[in-house]
């Protein structure tokens, strides 16, 4: 099993490497419910990792702690070699990161949500331009140019002046992807980005994801129930259950020749619908 889940010593938290996202001994609980338990995971630069698993297994949580929407309880996460939740002291030990440090590291990460979360009072282009102008200090002209390029890339140049209320679900999601791309993150997180869409609108969104994958610049972590798409886009598939990686490997292995019973029963259940 070509697993990247390493059972390293839990105190070994500071190792550096080329990995784009590196989870070390990450724990996350909501009250008494443990959602992530001693998670070790390396995602390589440019790698496309698809996370599958039953409902409640912690797939969303792993993306949310990477985006800092939820904070981890223990362990470390590194993004592009920098600790996300920690700062290194001059003595070489780790201390809790300041908000400023988190913001700096977080600028490498982008996320697309299941329910789009577009800003409803702004047009598509304003949604896309906001972060470049306000966070990156890009001039409005430049941000508009970039924004229009991105909207064209997702096939929505014609809709630049429409507000989210005037767009279909599939269009909203593509605007949301363009908005996330506008900050030029090296890591993009996608949480079931097609599952709130009518079936006939899914294709356009998947096409955009394929385009991003093809460029190969962006590390992608995707949670999806679209197994066909997972097979096509993934370099590696992680089967998640109860906050742990049960099985990990290329699609041909995990989907076609699963080694674990849990994976087999999950794939069986998914295949039934």
């Amino acid at each position: 099993m070509s697993t990247n889940v390493t059972e390293t010593d839990r105190t070994d938290l500071s190792d550096k490497g080329a990995a784009s996202v590196r989870f070390r001994a990450v724990d996350k609980a909501f009250g008494s419910l443990t959602v992530l338990e001693n998670l070790h995971l390396d995602v390589e630069p440019g790698e496309r990792v698809v996370i599958i698993g039953p409902s409640g297994s912690g797939k969303t949580t792993i993306l949310r702690v990477t985006m800092t929407l939820e904070h981890i309880d223990a362990g470390t996460i590194q993004v592009g070699g920098q600790h996300l939740y920690h700062e290194e002291t001059s003595a070489g030990s780790l201390k809790a990161a300041s908000e400023r440090h988190i913001r700096k590291v977080r600028s490498n990460i982008g996320m697309v949500f299941q329910h789009f979360n577009l800003f409803p009072h702004m047009s598509a282009i304003e949604n896309v331009m906001l972060a470049p102008v306000k966070v990156h200090g890009t001039s409005r002209e430049e941000a508009q140019h970039l924004g229009m390029e991105l909207l064209a890339k997702v096939g929505l140049a014609e809709h630049a002046n429409h507000t989210p209320g005037q767009l279909s679900g599939g269009q909203k999601q593509r605007v949301a992807i363009a908005r996330a791309l506008a900050t030029q993150p090296s890591v993009m997180l996608f949480d079931e980005v097609t599952s709130a869409l009518d079936p006939e609108l899914v294709g356009d969104v998947l096409k955009v994801l394929r385009d991003i994958a093809e460029e190969g610049k962006t590390t992608m972590m995707l949670v999806t129930h679209e197994m066909g798409f997972a097979r096509e886009i993934a370099d590696r598939i992680l089967m998640f259950d109860k906050g742990r990686v049960v099985e990990s490997g290329p699609p041909s292995q995990v989907l076609d020749d699963p080694q674990e019973d849990r994976t087999r029963s999950f794939l069986g259940a998914v295949a039934e619908h």
């Binding site: 913001r103 949500f113 800003f119």
Partner: peptide
């Protein structure tokens, strides 16, 4: 204001002033 709006503000790394005045 829906939770998703706050989360999108974090995901876009908006500074507090922009988050409050624009979102």
């Amino acid at each position: 204001v829906p939770k998703g709006q706050w989360e999108a503000s974090i995901a876009l790394n908006l500074d507090p002033a922009t988050k409050w005045t624009r979102i």
